[in-house]
Simulated assay, not measured.
Amino acid sequence: MWPRIGELRALSLGTPGEMRARLNALVLAEVKAATAGLIGEYAEEGEELERAGERLALVDDHDALVGVVEVTGVEVVRFADVPWDFARAEGEGDRSIEEWRAGHATYWARVGTPVTDDTQVVCIRFRLVSTEGGTAT
């Protein structure tokens, strides 16, 4: 199971270190409003998919709370079918869906889970509702 902070499931973006710090900063700046995961990770961890309205604890490398996001939508699609509007909502600077796919394929291969066009991707959209220091705008 994934870590919990109180009753909230933790949302730990990317890999620890510089990547997680950069992604968290994008969320806190309200630039990043989506993230993608692999359906296989949920099965391995015995976790259910997020659901619209669920709040998640955005955490740093030490599982400390940095903010709270509210899930606004969840969709499971083939890697090849992830839409550009979703990729753009991830806010990571990709200039095309092809660039997004290449970057994500490289990332998942690097962390030990190569993907194909048919790999099932969990596309989660969210909005920032609060930061560690108070309420978001």
Rank of each mutant, 00 (worst) to 15 (best):
I39V: 09
A109F: 14
V121K: 02
F79Y: 04
M19H: 01
F86P: 06
W84Y: 09
V121P: 01
G93L: 13
M1T: 14
E7T: 15
L38E: 01
E54P: 04
G46C: 12
L11K: 03
L58Y: 08
D85E: 15
V111I: 15
W108N: 00
V121S: 02
D94Y: 15
A136Q: 04
H62Y: 07
Q120S: 09
I97F: 06
A33T: 15
K32C: 06
E99T: 13
A29E: 14
G67K: 06
E30F: 05
L128V: 08
A21C: 07
W2H: 04
R88K: 10
A33C: 13
D118N: 07
V121G: 04
E70Y: 12
D118C: 03
I97Y: 05
T116E: 12
W2P: 00
S12Q: 11
R101N: 10
A43D: 06
C123R: 02
E70T: 12
F86G: 07
T113E: 06
V121R: 02
T135Y: 12
L28Y: 10
F79L: 07
N24I: 02
E99A: 15
G6I: 12
V76Y: 02
G37A: 01
E50T: 13
A64C: 06
V27C: 07
G6V: 12
W84P: 07
L23V: 10
G133H: 05
Y42G: 00
E75C: 01
T131H: 08
G6Y: 11
N24H: 03
E50C: 14
V74R: 03
T131Q: 11
E132G: 11
E48T: 07
D117L: 02
V74G: 02
E47K: 01
E41V: 00
V66K: 00
T113G: 00
A43C: 00
S96K: 11
A33R: 15
W84N: 07
G91D: 13
I5A: 10
L56K: 03
H104V: 07
R125Y: 03
P3T: 09
L38R: 09
A33N: 13
A57P: 07
G40A: 08
G93D: 15
A43R: 10
A10D: 11
E7Q: 14
E7D: 15
A34M: 06
V121A: 04
R127T: 15
T135G: 14
L26D: 13
T131V: 10
N24R: 01
A87Y: 01
D61K: 03
A34H: 05
S130C: 13
S12P: 03
L56W: 04
D118A: 11
V77H: 01
E7S: 15
V121Q: 02
R55P: 12
V115D: 04
A102Q: 06
A34W: 02
V111R: 11
D60E: 04
H104S: 05
P3L: 08
A89H: 06
A21G: 06
R110M: 04
I124D: 01
V74A: 03
R4K: 11
D94N: 15
L28A: 12
V66Y: 00
Q120I: 03
D61M: 06
E30C: 09
S96C: 12
E44P: 03
E54W: 08
A105N: 05
G53E: 14
Y107T: 09
V122E: 03
V31Y: 05
R9Y: 10
V115G: 06
A136Y: 01
E48L: 09
